[in-house]
């Protein structure tokens, strides 16, 4: 595997292979000294044109725990402000000797574009509203860890909120479906893409009708600027209809799981403290983020899977 740009590109075998590799990385992270020399001499550059806390930090931690060197590109203090183009920026960093770029950009398709300009591996850490494959891997791994299920066959997963603008939703719909889960999208029509008929999902508009039947309740962040764009009338109304309230927590199945990719909007989609939810996996999602990204970096840079000539 050379790049990780989308879940499609990964496929079912790639997905399950990475989840198994993550088990090894999780064991390393529990050692008193959680560091192995596997990627000694490799360099990973993070190229974030959008803000990030957990994705960027977990990639950097993952690289360091595999003994790779890291370079962090900070757009606000870079020559991009002097008008340097993306292509020249990538070429400049490539010339310094980089084995992988971790890329986040507001425009769809940038990771594919960049992979034309460099010989390094490209990892998509979020491109517009398109894909965020490592988040989907984290979420699949977290569900697998909690349920001990190798396949998600028969599992009912509801993704709630702003589907339209969410790359997390798009990657997760693909990944959950590949593993066999039945995915339901719960959102007002204004926060759904115009046509989801070709997606492997069912659609509901009322959270209360779904909440008692779901095994995994996946809450998405509502970006506050969406209100200004007229997608929701008021935050309060959105939160009444689609937020996780005490009443809805009580309606959940006793073993249902609650997840959120972060950052949370407390008082909007999360009306309650997630620590009040018995089966909240939000902290596991963050903890597993490092292990999953170690697996991705090792698969691309160290496993030698490219040596056999396969893509």
């Amino acid at each position: 595997m050379k790049h990780l740009r989308s879940i499609d590109e990964l496929g079912l075998d790639g997905l399950t292979g990475l989840l198994q590799l993550t088990d090894h990385m999780a064991e390393i992270n529990q050692r008193p000294v959680p560091k192995v020399p596997a990627l000694r001499g490799r360099t990973v550059a993070s190229l974030f044109f959008e803000d990030s806390t957990r994705t960027r930090l977990s990639f950097e931690t993952a690289a360091k725990r595999l003994s790779a060197d890291t370079m962090t590109f900070n757009v606000s203090t870079s020559s991009v402000n002097k008008g340097e183009s993306l292509r020249d920026t990538v070429a400049t960093i490539t010339d310094m000797g980089v084995d992988a770029f971790v890329v986040r950009h507001k425009s769809v398709g940038i990771p594919w574009q960049i992979s034309q300009w460099t010989t390094a591996s490209i990892i998509n850490a979020g491109d517009g509203a398109h894909q965020h494959p490592t988040q989907a891997l984290v979420d699949c791994y977290t569900i697998r860890e909690a349920t001990h299920a190798q396949s998600f066959a028969g599992m009912k997963i509801a993704i709630v909120g702003d589907i339209k603008h969410s790359r997390v939703a798009r990657s997760n719909i693909q990944a959950f479906s590949l593993l066999g889960a039945k995915v339901t999208l719960v959102a007002p029509p204004t926060l759904l893409p115009p046509d989801v008929s070709h997606w492997p999902v069912t659609v509901a508009h009322k959270l209360d009708e779904v909440v008692s039947q779901t095994d995994v309740l996946y809450m998405l962040r509502l970006q506050s600027e969406r209100m200004a764009q007229g997608h929701v009338p008021t935050l309060r109304e959105y939160s009444e209809q689609y937020g996780l309230t005490h009443k809805r927590v009580l309606a959940l199945k006793s073993d249902a799981i609650v997840m959120h990719p972060g950052p949370m909007n407390r008082g909007v989609e999360m009306q309650i403290d997630p620590s009040d939810v018995k089966n909240s996996l939000i902290h596991r999602q963050v903890a597993n983020g490092v292990s999953v990204r170690m697996a991705v970096l090792f698969e691309l840079l160290g496993s030698g899977s490219n040596l056999g000539g396969q893509a």
Partner: peptide, 17 residues
């Protein structure tokens, strides 16, 4: 993951430590 031939040949991971 501690071997000195990582990158020289495909790695097959054993069972978990």
């Amino acid at each position: 993951l501690h071997r000195d031939d990582i990158g020289l040949r495909p790695v097959s991971l054993g069972a978990i430590s």
